[in-house]
């Protein structure tokens, strides 16, 4: 078990209302997992609590000893003073430089490496940002809408590539696409409104690896389960 949230309750520093009440969840096995829920329900907040970026909650977060948990989101930017390629090379540990080249190809970033970040499209920006996180040493990478503005085919290719390259790592993928989380995630944490109990439900996904055509009826059942849970 990498991470377990026990009875987490939280309210925003300037807010009166609780965002979470006695919320429990865990990430038991490596793989590609999802965090799904309606807008404003607190997915990013929960993810940042898991990553240790937000304090002031009650309850307990149990992490595996020395677990490296990184949180990335689609609003992040690379510095503008150097090209994307230079930046990626600079923040990549020497041992991961071959991986950098592999990811640049897999994520179709070859045409962007000589450009400044501000010159990229939104989808390219998100791919470049995700790439640099994947090159770090981590146990769990939380991807908060990290593939927003990326076209569906490329998104699929990226998720499949991540699953192939990092089979032993944990990923928590936050997305608003039911089909996507149902297709690619092993477990989906469905976060619901605070008035619903329990606030978080775990649903099994299809954990598709891109090697075969997904079982359509099973996928539809998973999607239905997620929508019902939400």
């Amino acid at each position: 078990m990498l991470l377990q949230c026990l009875n987490i309750s939280y309210r925003y520093p300037q807010g009166d209302a609780l965002v979470f009440r006695d919320l429990n969840c865990r990430l038991a096995d490596p793989g590609f997992h999802g965090l799904f829920g309606p807008s404003g329900v607190g997915k990013s907040t929960l993810a940042r609590i898991m990553a240790g970026e937000i304090s002031g909650f009650t309850g307990e977060i149990k992490r595996r000893d020395r677990a490296g948990i990184l949180y990335s989101c689609n609003t992040e930017r690379l510095p503008g003073w150097s090209s994307v390629g230079d930046h990626l090379t600079k923040v990549t540990p020497a041992a991961n430089l071959p991986l950098l080249r592999e990811l640049i190809t897999a994520f179709d970033l070859g045409s962007c490496v000589d450009s400044r970040f501000s010159q990229l499209s939104l989808g390219q920006k998100n791919r470049a940002n995700l790439t640099r996180y994947l090159l770090q040493d981590f146990d769990l990478l939380i991807m908060d809408e990290s593939l927003a503005n990326v076209d569906e085919a490329t998104r699929k290719q990226i998720i499949v590539t991540i699953k192939q390259i990092f089979p032993d790592r944990y990923f928590l993928y936050i997305s608003h696409s039911v089909a996507e989380v149902a297709t690619f995630c092993a477990r989906i944490l469905v976060l619901r409104d605070i008035h619903k109990s329990p606030q978080l439900i775990e649903v099994a996904g299809r954990d598709h690896h891109g090697d075969a055509v997904p079982d359509r009826p099973a996928l539809e059942r998973a999607m239905l389960e997620i929508v019902h849970a939400a």
Binding site: L70, Y71, E76, R77, L78, V91, N129
Partner: peptide
Amino acid sequence: AGIEHFYVVTGR
């Protein structure tokens, strides 16, 4: 925050 976050969480 949009730029600094990466450097902070990766200890750089």
